[in-house]
């Protein structure tokens, strides 16, 4: 391990909070919200890889790979939803999608 595990954890916490702030601030734009979720998932992956390096077992790296597969599934579905919503209202602003009624 080249650095203490605490430094890796601090970096991951900083990245996670930046992703959280991105999701909260850009809550009117669906695409920027998705970008914030990506940043948060990357921070989680960093924790797993740092733990795997610290304890010398491959399990953490396996779970980082699982997170990556989960993210690609999530992104493909979410972007399909974005395209669908854009086709209905011609915008990606979440304030426009406040009605449940089908038009």
């Amino acid at each position: 391990m080249i650095v203490p595990l605490a430094h890796v954890l601090v970096l991951a916490v900083i990245l996670f909070c930046l992703g959280l702030i991105c999701t909260l601030v850009w809550r009117s734009n669906v695409i920027m919200m998705l970008i914030g979720i990506e940043i948060m998932l990357n921070a989680a992956m960093l924790v797993f890889v740092g733990g795997a390096c610290h304890w010398g077992t491959a399990d953490g790296q396996v779970f980082a790979l699982m997170i990556m597969a989960m993210t690609s599934a999530e992104v493909s579905l979410a972007l399909a939803l974005v395209v669908y919503l854009h086709r209905r209202r011609n915008t990606v602003d979440t304030d426009e999608f406040r009605e449940l009624q089908d038009q």
Binding site: P4, V13, A52, G56
Partner: peptide, 19 residues
């Protein structure tokens, strides 16, 4: 709050082989 917890997290350094 998480950063204080993470920065204070000390474990014994493992002498583990590379993966």
């Amino acid at each position: 709050s998480i950063g204080v917890l993470a920065a204070g997290y000390v474990t014994a350094p493992h002498t583990s082989s590379a993966i």
